[in-house]
Design a protein around this nucleic acid. Structure first.
Lengths: 211, 211
DNA sequence: TTATATTTGTTGCAATTGCAACAAGTTTTT
DNA sequence: AAAAACTTGTTGCAATTGCAACAAATATAA
């Protein structure tokens, strides 16, 4: 059974008690607002309670890189990310974020919260999941051509659907940033993939034809 | 204080007891031997006790990708890696590997090992560290040109040394695979970097000149 | 110490890619 | 409903890259 949230398996009432014990604080962010501008030095972790956000970075050439898409229950923070870089988390829709100090999570609770160990375990599962996701991303980015990058990314998305259909979770502009490639070159290659019969597209709906 | 091993802070004697409790098994691998040929379906994790290894993958074009360099205390296994891919772990020197079932690590010990919670905590720290490392790798791979990939990778290596000198932990051939680029194109670019005064090289010893 | 294998260094050439620029289509804001 | 902002689609061109191939230098094995 997959862990979805760090509070999986913990009773609603107990969660509330724990949040007090953790001195957790919730904040609301409007779409396009910056949730964290510089992830370094944040000894807190953030948990997306509702809404979506992107973790992104601009390099010195002004090229944006979308490091990660965050959604409900996603966890972010220094411990989960690259230290020392100009990474920010931007709300892509209105969202609510819960901030908790990292130390509270990993240390054994002095007040003896009985659910603390469940929570630790959940964090462990989420971290494992994140590692798997990062490795997926790495697998895509380690492809040498735009065509291969697209196909391996599409393959990941199509895996969930027996008809091999999926909807891009991105605009094409964002997709290019996610794959770290030039948008126009990517559009050209998508056209080639269509011409060569690898994919069919209808807006952001894509069907993978071959295996 | 950084956690180096999953057994950090646990007494030697207690480790031995735990290993029995975990049904841990140690195995020796000679250089160039395959430690795990297909990481999927392994419900175990491996811990490098001594020696070094590479986690690698060959795509259908025969291009090798070095996913990760493993050394003493590195942990690998299904939970820490991309599922379903043809990933293998190859010894790059003689090494000793300890295998433990993942379940034993995360479940609360029925026999009441008092150090179990320390261990869970250590695993958590190691996972966090791995996430940070993966993000570093992603940062390098998300650069769009070979030059930028090289410079950002060198930057990471040079960060540890005030003189901005470092020795590549790779042969140049392996470096190209690690960066997912063509070796000859990479050599050409390294030459350009030298000509342009960005770096000085002496074999695998490199000095970063500019910032 | 020879033989064998691997790594490094180089080059021409063709293919891929990034860049710049612009038009057309959508969506969002005013 | 009009204006503004963003996304999609397209192209020529120059720069970068991958590929193939080979020689020289090192490292490893016999």
């Amino acid at each position: 059974m997959e862990v979805k949230s760090i509070f999986d398996g913990i009773d609603e009432n107990d969660i509330k008690k724990m949040l007090v014990c953790f001195e957790a604080r919730a904040r609301i962010f409007k779409k396009d607002r910056t949730i964290v501008s510089n992830i370094i030095n944040i000894k807190m972790i953030g948990i997306i309670i509702s809404g979506t956000a992107n973790m992104e970075r601009y390099d010195y050439n002004g090229n944006r890189s979308i490091i990660e898409k965050l959604e409900k229950n996603s966890v972010f923070g220094e411990v989960f990310s690259r230290l020392g870089s100009d990474i920010s988390v931007i709300a892509t829709s209105d969202c609510e974020v819960l901030f908790i100090e990292y130390e509270h999570l990993i240390k054994r609770c002095k007040k003896g919260c009985i659910y603390h160990s469940i929570l630790t375990n959940n964090v462990l599962q989420l971290l494992s999941k994140k590692i798997i996701d990062l490795n997926k991303r790495l697998e895509v980015l380690s492809k040498r051509t735009i065509r291969e990058k697209l196909l391996s990314y599409f393959e990941l998305l199509a895996n969930d659907n027996p008809k091999r259909k999926f909807t891009l979770p991105f605009t094409y502009t964002d997709l290019a940033d996610y794959l770290s490639i030039d948008r126009s070159a990517m559009m050209r290659e998508i056209k080639n993939l269509k011409d060569d019969g690898f994919i069919e597209t209808n807006g952001r709906k894509i069907t993978l034809k071959s295996y």
